[in-house]
Design a protein around this nucleic acid. Structure first.
Lengths: 206, 206
DNA sequence: TAGATTGTTAATCGATTAACAATC
DNA sequence: TAGATTGTTAATCGATTAACAATC
C-alpha cells in the first residue's frame, strides 16, 4: 500500500540532495539527522520523517551514510537514469542554460534546441544542434525526447506546449511566465517564474 | 496588533498578481473569488482568506475590482516603489536577465553590473554599465543599491554575498546553487535554484 | 555493555476548507 | 427587494514537532 508522498516532502528532497553532495565533496561519510537538520535550518524530526517516507536509510546509533543517502535520493527523484531533453528558444536564457547548467548531474541529456532565428539555425551551442521550429515534429519523431524546456517568448509558449504534448513530450520545464499546468493536467509542468521570486524578495525587504 | 502573514500566503501573492495583470490586459474589470479560484486551481475560500490577511478588498455581492486588487497586491509586495539593483556576474545568465527580464514591472531599476572579464568591463548591456569587481565598494558607496542579483560562479558567491552585506545591501536575489540565508539571517535572500525545479520535474515524470 | 541515534507513534500546530451571517 | 458574494468564524485536514521504544 503506497502512501502518497506530500508535495512539501518532494520539494525538500532537492535541498537534501544538494547538501549531501556538498558533504560528500567535503569528504564527510556519515551524518546524523540532528547535524543535517542544523546545517539546513530544519528539525531532526523532520529530517527523519522525510527520509522515512521512502524507507529506512539510516542506522540506529550511527546516523546516515552520506553516499548511500545521496544515491537513494537520486533514485527517488529519478535523476539516476538518463532522460533526453530539447530546448525551445535559444535566446539568452536558453543559451545560458545550455552553456552553464550541469544537466548531466540531473540525468538529463540535451539533444536539440529550436529557434526561429535564421542566424542560429544549423549552428551549435555547447554541442547542442539548433533546428528551425518547423523541424520540431520531424526531430521529435526521430529523437523521442522526454523533457521540453521552454525558454521562448511568452506569446509562443502556450502553442509550443500544446504542440509538444501532442508530439508525446513527458514533462515541461517552463521558464516563461505563463501558467501551463491548467491546460494540460496530464503532463507534469515545473515552473521557474523569476518574477515570483523577485516579488517575494521585494516583500521581505520592507 | 499585526498578525503574522504566513509564508504560504506570501508565496501565492505573485501568482495572484500575475493573473490579475492578465485579467486587466484582457479588459476584465471585476472578478469573484470563485471565478479567480477556478482560473488558478484554488478554492474560493482560500482566495478570500488570502486577501483578507491584508484587509477587505472586495465588496459583497460584487466581487473584487481587478485594477484595485492588482494595485493593492503591488503595494503589499512593495513593487510599487522603485528600488535600485546591481547584478554580480554578466555572463550568459546575467546577460539574459538584463536583456529580457522586465525589472521595471517589479519596481526594480538596474544601475550597474559587475564582472571580472576585461572584455566586458567598461561596456554596457541593455543600458546597464559593467564595472570591474574591484570597483564594487566605490560604486556601491556612490549608488547605494538595495538589491544584489547573484549570477556569478558558485565558488565566488559566498564571498561576494558577504562583501555586499558589509557594504549595506538590503536583499539578495540568488541564482547560484548555494544556500546563503544561513550565513546572514539579517539580510533577506531569495533563491532561484534551477536544479531543484528540474529534480521535482524528474520526480513527477516517473 | 553504554551511548547514540534511528524509526515511528502521538501531540501539536498551522493551513485549508466549509459554512453562513452580513451586506452590497 | 432578491441575488450574489464577501468577510469571518468554525471544522477539518495535513504537516511539523515531540517523545520514546527499538536497536545498532
Amino acid at each position: 500500500m503506497e502512501k502518497k508522498i506530500s508535495s512539501a516532502v518532494i520539494h525538500r528532497m532537492p535541498r537534501y540532495f544538494r547538501h549531501l553532495c556538498d558533504l560528500q565533496d567535503a569528504g564527510i561519510t556519515r551524518i546524523s539527522s540532528g547535524t543535517l537538520a542544523e546545517r539546513m535550518g530544519l528539525t531532526a524530526s523532520q529530517v527523519r520523517q522525510d527520509f522515512n517516507c521512502f524507507g529506512g536509510f539510516g542506522q540506529q546509533g550511527y546516523g546516515y551514510n552520506v553516499a548511500e543517502l545521496r544515491a537513494a535520493i537520486a533514485g527517488i527523484m529519478g535523476i539516476d537514469r538518463e532522460r533526453t531533453a530539447i530546448i525551445m528558444g535559444a535566446g539568452n536564457l536558453g543559451k545560458a542554460l545550455m552553456t552553464n547548467f550541469n544537466f548531466t548531474k540531473y540525468g538529463v541529456r540535451l539533444v536539440a534546441a529550436f529557434d526561429s532565428n535564421p542566424l542560429l539555425i544549423g549552428t551549435e551551442i555547447a554541442g547542442v544542434p539548433i533546428y528551425s521550429c518547423r523541424e520540431l515534429d520531424r526531430v521529435m519523431e526521430e529523437l523521442q525526447p522526454e523533457i521540453a524546456i521552454l525558454t521562448l517568448p511568452k506569446i509562443h509558449a502556450r502553442a509550443a506546449a500544446q504542440r509538444l504534448v501532442s508530439a508525446g513530450i513527458k514533462g515541461i520545464w517552463n521558464f516563461t511566465s505563463i501558467d501551463l499546468h491548467l491546460d494540460m493536467p496530464q503532463v507534469p509542468v515545473e515552473n521557474v517564474h523569476f518574477s515570483e521570486s523577485l516579488m517575494v524578495l521585494s516583500y521581505k525587504i520592507q
